[in-house]
Design a protein around this nucleic acid. Structure first.
Lengths: 345, 345
DNA sequence: GGTTCATATGTTAGCGCTTACATTATAGTA
DNA sequence: TACTATAATGTAAGCGCTAACATATGAACC
């Protein structure tokens, strides 16, 4: 292991040239004679020399490495974003390191230090649900970070977060979902999901209301419950909603903020003896790999996460300040069914 | 963005001291007078100075960054390992970057270049199923990498891979699983999984046979089918097995190489109208987050992946050459049931 | 044959740190 | 008072590259 790496000086002396010439060969400059170039190449191969990107970076002030911060890699949603980012970054000669969400927690001591000291060429931050005043802290950290490196956000980004970002048009997606459920005959449609920042024009609540309005259905407070994003949260949220309503007012369809919440809802529904989709249609969000293997297979909305990650890298390295949205796709499976068919069974 | 970072010279001149003194303060050396120290601290805070770990690394030859290579982040199994590694690394002041599996593909041009040029302080490689002669290529790459940086392996590691590694005792786990199923009354127990290297003393096939022997059950070729690790692979494998057998010889229990394969098996079983667990018990491996939400909830074996990742980092940074195994835990859920109870229904 | 210019190569000063060594100031000792 | 040990600080040489500039060698031109 580690038998002292060769340096450019070793190669130069082996090949009998100056380090400048070696550097020229390394960078593929044209003004080197073929003969010299070959001597250098051979020396490089003999010693298995690889130039240090560290030393290189010191001069160029580029590290060719990016960072990504996300709430939880265990959620495949983020794993997909990461994968997309990593693949795109690699194509462009960059590396992506994972930093914990706590790097944004200004309550901890100087959390961004590690990020800044590494002189990343850019940072991708996946923003989720921001409860209470926590959003303030995150925003403060983001602003500080942006002073020293380009930052691109992914996900739920309120407009006053004045950052370039990649996201989905949540309002439009949500509206499509509502109208899809309406087209299946549903009239009591619940939405279980996180708090969206009030002013976010793309927020899901807007789409939810718009969909209902367009279908001439009332917005019913009890059908809108809030929760965080785990299966347990989803289960508790659905339980709370059903407990508070007489069975005859129970929703016939539930829109879950993500597939994890949808899974929790399925669990709760099953425990209550509700048949799915006959008694309850459920639709998820993110189209995780396991969606087809749930019972019933979960209808969900594919948000093209890998593309999102890749696009974020492009914005980052292109220095573009835009906010961008990526396409989505409703993937129909068995968890949503026409309501009449359900009732007739 | 990026208003030219301050350097140690800026701080020195602001504070009216030499750069050596600033460096002393930065590294917390004691032989600096309180007065000077405070002057320097103030200058640092005023300019929001963060020393460059790049420059630092040039001298110290340490980058404080690790790499991880894994087959597919989308498999939560690897996401858990990564998470464990990342958290441990962070505690120790290290960062973890993700590199694609293709970095080990010696068929591609000089794949390790990116890894080596970055002068990582260590590399974790998650080794999965190694089909055919591909293992040779991977091994060659690993050997080359080890010449320049410490490497620790995770997962399925044949003994002639002379590397430090963290893994589970697959033989013991498998034996436990077989005997667990036997204790439920199963006698026709199938195993659907990858090829294990012949000489691996910890391989699952050994545990499978041992378990059967101990239970005085015959080893039946048809119950041992091979496949890769996706749900589709699992589905196809089970289909192939059942197609080839008369229904009265169908297994009553299936051990899947991982939860993804188990999910595929569930799908296939459901399509064939098999009741689970009455007609078929299935046990998975990895205990993914979705296991409790499958139908029926999947019994699986928790391999403590986060701990595995963390341990790998410790070995890496401790320079330990050992091979180590981590504990596991059988998590019982509804997908495995006593066979008699099943038949009686 | 000297001037000019293109081509090939070498020299050297950084990049922002760490660190061995040198220097200065201060106090303690004989 | 001179002499030495100690503490506080400064100087400068790297670490392994890049890049601006300098130099050398010919070929082309009038």
């Amino acid at each position: 292991m580690a038998s002292e790496n060769a340096t450019i000086y070793d190669i130069a002396s082996d090949a009998g040239v100056s380090i400048a010439t070696v550097s020229r060969v390394l960078r593929g400059e044209s003004n080197v004679s073929d003969e010299t170039r070959q001597k250098v190449q051979r020396a490089i191969e003999r010693r298995n020399y690889r130039p240090s990107s560290i030393a290189r970076g010191l001069m160029s002030k580029k590290t060719h490495s990016l960072g990504i911060i996300l709430p939880k890699l265990l959620n495949p949603h983020y794993a997909m974003i990461f994968t997309g980012a990593q693949e795109e970054a690699r194509m462009l000669g960059y590396t992506v390191s994972l930093f914990p969400w706590s790097s944004l927690d200004t309550k901890a001591y100087d959390p961004a230090t590690m990020l800044i000291e590494r002189r990343l060429d850019g940072l991708i931050v996946c923003v989720e649900y921001l409860p209470d005043d926590h959003g303030e802290h995150v925003l403060a950290s983001l602003r500080e970070l942006r002073r020293v490196m380009p930052v691109v956000l992914i996900g739920c980004v309120p407009p006053w977060y004045d950052f370039p970002a990649v996201s989905n048009n949540n309002a439009a997606m949500m509206k499509e979902i509502v109208l899809y459920l309406v087209s299946l005959g549903h009239e009591r449609i619940a939405f279980i999901g996180g708090f969206a920042e009030d002013n976010d024009p793309q927020r899901r609540d807007i789409g939810y209301r718009e969909g209902l309005r367009e279908a001439r259905l009332p917005y019913i407070e009890s059908y809108r419950v809030f929760c965080k994003g785990t299966p347990e949260d989803g289960r508790a949220a659905l339980r709370g909603m059903l407990d508070a309503l007489k069975p005859e007012y129970w929703p016939s369809a539930v829109i879950a903020m993500n597939d994890l919440v949808a899974m929790g809802c399925q669990g709760e529904a099953r425990d209550r003896g509700l048949r799915m989709p006959e008694d309850l249609s459920i639709i998820g969000w993110d189209d995780l790999f396991c969606a087809p293997y749930l019972c019933p297979p979960l209808t969900s909305i594919n948000t093209h996460q890998q593309q999102t990650g890749a696009r974020a890298v492009q914005l980052l390295l292109g220095g573009e300040q835009r906010r961008e949205t990526v396409d989505w796709e409703l993937v129909e499976r068995a968890s949503c069914a026409p309501i009449n068919k359900g009732k007739e069974i």
